[in-house]
Write a protein that binds this DNA or RNA. Sequence first.
DNA 1: GGGAATTGGTTTCATTGTTAACCAAGCTCC
DNA 2: GGAGCTTGGTTAACAATGAAACCAATTCCC
Lengths: 167, 167
Amino acid sequence: MKPIPSGPLRSEDGAPTLDLEHFLPFRLSVLANRLTRAVARVYAQRFQLSAPEWRTMAVLGRYGAMTANSVVERTAMDKVRVSRAVARLLARERVTRRTDPDDRRRAILDLTPEGRAVYAKVVPMVLAVESELLSQLSAEERALLDRVVHKLEQRTAGDFAGSEDEI
Amino acid sequence: MKPIPSGPLRSEDGAPTLDLEHFLPFRLSVLANRLTRAVARVYAQRFQLSAPEWRTMAVLGRYGAMTANSVVERTAMDKVRVSRAVARLLARERVTRRTDPDDRRRAILDLTPEGRAVYAKVVPMVLAVESELLSQLSAEERALLDRVVHKLEQRTAGDFAGSEDEI
DNA sequence: GGGAATTGGTTTCATTGTTAACCAAGCTCC
DNA sequence: GGAGCTTGGTTAACAATGAAACCAATTCCC
């Protein structure tokens, strides 16, 4: 165990050094990937469900019928992904789609009873994975993690470029 | 600020509820994606470099020549990705590959002078992105974030399945 | 010494993600 | 009322990914 240096590491010649093991974007990326896989594992094979499909079902199950666009907003997926996920969910009769009579561009999506049944089974499973994960953390740690992640979400929200000169 | 609920949320009927917005694996996945893109933005076009290529260069630049397998371990990418990244880096003459005389299955990779030059230019750029990101956090928050992420890394290391009965 | 298992790495193939083009409905504003 | 912009969503084309098959060199172990 080496003592933790306070500033950014520098190599002998004074140039800043990049250690992937300590580089936050990298670490989070690896971590998030593992988590996604761990979560997907509980529903993928058992319910023949991909992550985009599950996310779509998750928001429909939680908030009720909505347009594809709303699904896009709530899931942080782009519309192509949602479109394809919905196509597969329709094929498997897990959601329905009906054209909004008030604005015929819109299609309103909703879970079928069968979709709802799948939803009800999957929710506890993925929550169990999360809570197992969090079981390692104290209440303070959880609260702070929540706060910090929230800050980072804010910080990166406008698709932060650091120096994006939008007009 | 809402008070932090102690247990998992439950809907009226007592069934547990899943809110993507508060589901940690989902949040981290979205956040990590944004971070990866933000970091990639600083080197992608300017140096014609993809994320896997950059990661490969990063470990070679930091730790010196090593086999592809070691790159795999250090970057947490799978070997296919590394293999392809290396192929492109070879084509652009940013790394060299020579067969290890002691074990002719192995190929030892290293940065070329040009690769090293690119590395030296990119490192400060990505560090700047990270530090801009972290500038939002207090010292305590950073320290705790580091600790919590470390815990989660440990927790998910064995590719935690929650119930993987390995022998 | 020599077959079987292992290791390092690449290729193949099916899936997925991304970007741009596209279509159809609705809105704007003259 | 109709040319042109905007919005909701799908399709098409292309690059990136991951699992498994594969090849070659090495080690195991009888």
